[in-house]
Amino acid sequence: MIVAEGVVKRFGRTTALGGVSLHVRAGERVALLGHNGAGKSTLMKLLTGQMLPGEGSVRIAGIDVAVSPNAARERLGFVPEEPAVWDYLTAREMLEFVVGVRGRGDVDAALELTGLGADADRLVREYSQGMRRKVAIAAALIADPPALIFDEALNGLDPPSALRVAEELQRRAAAGAAVLLSTHVIDLVPRVADRVVVLRAGRVEADAPVAELGPEGLARVFG
């Protein structure tokens, strides 16, 4: 569902990704780990059509992102590391905009899911960083896309909210969605992922089921 095939990306003389292949199947939750500079952000930008691969291809739900970026966007819900929200709309208005462009979605359900119901009619500019992130998460989930990519998206959420979002991602995966989530928080991985992929220096260093690795194995492959 979320596929990177032999992706190479160079910036001048620097090779950010040196032939990365990543497959997230329908119903699967994958955590993408990597230290700063490992290539996570570059890979996220390629997967979400914010940048083009130098070699290789990227597909969302079978659609080549470079060839048909708009169709790929239809099938992707993406939460960037910095939540992108409109300060001068309320959370409800912002989600109504998303429903408008995506053609489907339940605003009240998304607000309920992210715990924003009581603050839904306040301007987003009055929100805390965590609440802004919740709006971005609600916008990514609202139209129920088959592919979900969360870039460090649980950072800054209070623990109950992070848990609720993690449970929602599990429920979506069980219903057939593919979930890719990058994080630095290794303790979070068992709650949000079935499989872990570790990037180091622009290459996939490890790719293994979380259950097989266990806490020590996770610490070892990430360490």
């Binding site: 930008k45 914010q50 083009l52 708009n70 169709a71």
Partner: peptide, 26 residues
């Protein structure tokens, strides 16, 4: 123009910005 052309603009801008970033870093 068609939706794909409009949706392609961020990728093109991303490439332009990355090129400038590389030049600026140097």
């Amino acid at each position: 123009v068609d939706g794909d052309t409009l949706a392609r603009i961020p990728a093109v801008l991303g490439e332009v910005d990355a090129s400038y970033a590389a030049v600026e870093a140097a």
